[in-house]
Design a protein around this nucleic acid. Structure first.
Lengths: 220, 220
DNA sequence: ACAAAAGTGTTCGATATACACCCATGT
DNA sequence: ACATGGGTGTATATCGAACACTTTTGT
């Protein structure tokens, strides 16, 4: 009586035009040393959300992160330790913050979802499930915002969508849609890295709040 | 070390033009005798899905039931027993089968979601969450099928949608949409209860399979 | 001057919405 | 004959998809 409950985290970021997942080398049994998504045994005085959030912070030191419960996995034989039910969450980490997450020696790294190494337990399934959910979400919401820094250009945003959806989008249609959604605030700032300077945008806080689903956490 | 894991079931049906939930009188502590949705402590050799399915069958003796994992609830103080994480599922039970589920003396009954009695723990939240999910699902899928017997008329189907969505729908547009979805097979049978006989329909198995989401279970 | 990415409108097809009358039957 | 729910089509608005050129800068 009493089952082990863990929280698994699929942490996404987009870097170098690829959708990446944060993988760590397990430092506990079983499968010590194998690649895995971060996992934490929840302790008795934290909620599931708190456990997920704490794990996320320990891994990334990030703030303002999109975090949502994904699904719970509880097949009988999914963990050789015995009965372990895991509640999976996924998080979207802005690219700039993602780059700051140090590979801290331990073999942890960002890996492209297109070329995942073998993962322990049923984590491959969990990651695939998260990728599907993310794609679905992008089709009908604006959640892609969360993978970019606070200020960004429309081309950068479009690139994120194209990366995750795996297809090219029409620039004019994309911009029209973003405009219609009405969640972008054009700034009086321009990014001058390319040739022609590109306008920067931010998300409007209020609209953003209203768009968020139940189930989405905004820790700050 | 080890946390109690339960499965909670929100079992829906539509009867007398109302969306109903199956409530039972708890026969265990805590809150013995209070109204609650069915709950089961999962045991070590069944998966979450199996636990949910088994609970569903024990409650309803039904088959061919739509069953889908809803969300996991794990707030610290949600259960006075101590730390209990629950994985909630919801099920859609055809009206005719629902009527056959016996109130078996124990005070269990179908209750309208519009007038829910107080429930134990955070189960009100769970039920509300399930209702929202069901509404969302009906807006963009055909899941409402599952609340009707195998053969049904278009008016019956429309009534189910109107009940759950809480608004009137246009008959012609509704039928056009159902037709477009292409999942209904018109039968050479008519229901002769009203004045003019109404044609009966079934769902096409193959199309239906293709429409189903990941996460939906068809036990048979 | 030219290369490179930024920016900008219109047309067309598909899908959703609004809306009203005739039909087949039981009483 | 009439009351009841069954059944049917068209016009309009809205949304998504396709499509190409000009602008601004750095080199």
């Amino acid at each position: 009586m009493g089952i082990q409950v863990t929280v698994d985290l699929v942490i996404f970021s987009v870097q170098e035009s690829a959708l990446k997942v944060w993988l760590v080398k397990r430092d506990n049994r079983p499968f010590k040393g194998h690649l895995a998504i971060p996992e934490r045994v929840i302790n008795k005085n934290e909620s599931l959300d708190q456990a997920a959030l704490r794990e996320l912070k320990e891994e990334t030191r990030a703030r303002q992160v999109y975090l949502e419960q994904l699904y719970s996995f509880g097949d009988r034989k999914r963990d050789p330790r015995g009965r372990v039910v895991t509640v999976a969450y996924y998080a979207l980490l802005p690219g700039d913050q993602a780059k700051r997450v140090s590979p801290n020696g331990s073999g942890a790294a960002w890996r492209s979802v297109d070329a995942l190494p073998p993962l322990v337990f049923d984590q491959k399934r969990i990651v695939n499930y998260a990728v599907e959910r993310l794609r679905t979400k992008l089709e009908y919401t604006t959640a892609g915002f969360q993978l970019l820094p606070r200020k960004f250009t429309l081309s950068e945003l479009q690139a994120v969508y194209e990366t995750i959806l795996g297809k090219k989008l029409d620039k004019r249609n994309f911009r029209k849609k973003m405009d219609l959604l009405g969640v972008l605030k054009p700034l009086r700032e321009w990014r001058r890295t390319g040739r022609k300077p590109a306008r920067l945008y931010m998300f409007k806080g209020k609209k953003f709040e209203r768009l968020k689903d139940k189930g989405i956490l905004f820790p700050f």
